[in-house]
Design a protein around this nucleic acid. Sequence first.
DNA 1: TGATCAAATAAATATATGTTTATATAAATT
DNA 2: AATTTATATAAACATATATTTATTTGATCA
Lengths: 248, 248
Amino acid sequence: MSVPDPSETMIRKFESRARLDDADRKAIRSLPFVRHTYHPNAYILREGEPPRPHCVLVQTGFAFRQKLTAEGARQIVSFHLRGDFLDLQHLFLNMTDHNVQALTEVDAVCIDRSALQRLVLDRPSVGKAMWVEALVDSSVYREWVTNVGRRDAQTRIAHVLCEFAVRMKSAGLKDGPPFEFPLTQEQLADAVGLTQVHVNRTLRSLAAENIIVPHRRHITLCDWDKAKSVAAFNALYLHLDQIRDATA
Amino acid sequence: MSVPDPSETMIRKFESRARLDDADRKAIRSLPFVRHTYHPNAYILREGEPPRPHCVLVQTGFAFRQKLTAEGARQIVSFHLRGDFLDLQHLFLNMTDHNVQALTEVDAVCIDRSALQRLVLDRPSVGKAMWVEALVDSSVYREWVTNVGRRDAQTRIAHVLCEFAVRMKSAGLKDGPPFEFPLTQEQLADAVGLTQVHVNRTLRSLAAENIIVPHRRHITLCDWDKAKSVAAFNALYLHLDQIRDATA
DNA sequence: TGATCAAATAAATATATGTTTATATAAATT
DNA sequence: AATTTATATAAACATATATTTATTTGATCA
């Protein structure tokens, strides 16, 4: 897939969540922005720092949010892909409360923070689009608390795979049923609150049941229906009905 | 503590997060609302239903959000107290994605949903107040994913107690260092992703270390410094600096 | 007041997941 | 191509937490 034009990425993002008029579009097109590329594992945001003067929107590649405990353990709390804002979570907060890292090479649009703040507060349609964005993020967090707190290893891992598959498809990044999940087993372990060793065991068992195929540091989900049933996956929490243009 | 006037509760809530002018205050005072009381364990919101026509703001008492897994396990994902909105999470979503239950008797103000939507989108100061509210909720969810995913039982439980203490104090509901935590051990278990039996064991050990005193179905936190250190608690994620009037 | 019910405590046992260490495989680097 | 490094796999063992069942304590209610 080719790298889209940054302005188009922004317009498409806002339009995916709410109906805009010409004035909205014009205001979005006039947002000051710069492009930036992050390498795998690069820190895009750091806990404890004041928010950066720009807001990051992913154009290509994948990123994740994480927190570190006092003992140094890492918990990944969400994944992000094309069209996701990485900085919306701090748009009106005075301090960064978690870390964001690039998972793969990330091409991003960095939008001027105060211009975006004004846009969100002053233009109701844009405001609504960003509200939906933020509220869906919250919903996903609630699902993750539940996933990590109350599901066993198999279910938990299958659930994360299903979520990723659905979001990939919704972002137009997934073609066939098999799709790639560009995570190491260590990263997956940090996302589901297990150890890398146990994730390996569990992936082997999912592979033995022909649900996934681990392949070159990526996981391929090959049986959606089985995965969905193992994961007890219900996509309600992703609020996909609130995406106006899922495959554009 | 006496039950405050609903209008004052609303004004105070919005003013705690952003500076308002007279027009804002007037708009808030003219919000249509009704009062409602919920009994312990009553469902205030139900997953899978369309959002109710009103938004619930807690005046007195405590509530919690929870999700149920396919196997029937319950995960509590947050607690709420005086001044918290229970419905903000669905203000712009078409479907309720989790359940909310009263923990104690809850006195609430139910604000007309579409009026609140308009207020939030059309009045930048009010909008900003609600943004801060929603973003802090998100931050708390991230901390809970981390708590449940990467901390052991003692730390995990102590962390929830510390969070509760800090929020109680910030809401002006806590006087001395010892304070009450009105949860059964089963509810606490569902909040930290453990079993009731293990929560009991762990509470006993915290009691043996003189950090807490279990007392009449409530837990009293009696040694804040010790609890904070056992929990490795850092209040950054609560963004207390963004509350303008913490003890009013 | 006693009866009933919900919650807390206790102890024994089971198990899912963690820990440690070693090896194999694949990717990256010179 | 050879070397180094990161990741995946494997097996043995350790342990934190789960499960089950019983008892006790404290609330609630007829």
